[in-house]
């Protein structure tokens, strides 16, 4: 039963970590749009980024 002494605190730490991670994701709106991302890889053409705006683009340092 000595295993319990170690394993139970480990579960508690893990679950606290999981909760924190989930809260972070909710705060960053990861669950707001669940419909669009799944169709993105199926789009016929590659994203237009980089070809069309190359002349106006400025990259943040």
């Amino acid at each position: 039963m000595n295993a319990l002494i170690i394993l139970i605190p480990v579960t508690l730490v893990l679950i606290g970590f999981a909760t924190g991670l989930f809260f972070w994701a909710v705060r960053h709106d990861q669950f707001q749009d669940l419909d669009t991302p799944e169709i993105l890889p199926l789009m016929d053409e590659a994203p237009m980024t980089g070809t069309r705006y190359s002349e106006t683009k400025e990259i943040a340092p």
């Binding site: 993105l40 994203p47 683009k57 400025e58």
Partner: peptide, 15 residues
């Protein structure tokens, strides 16, 4: 959706 992704990436790259 494609323009949405484009726009988001472009805006995020702005200083």
């Amino acid at each position: 959706p494609r323009r949405t992704v484009d726009l988001q990436q472009y805006l995020e790259s702005l200083r």
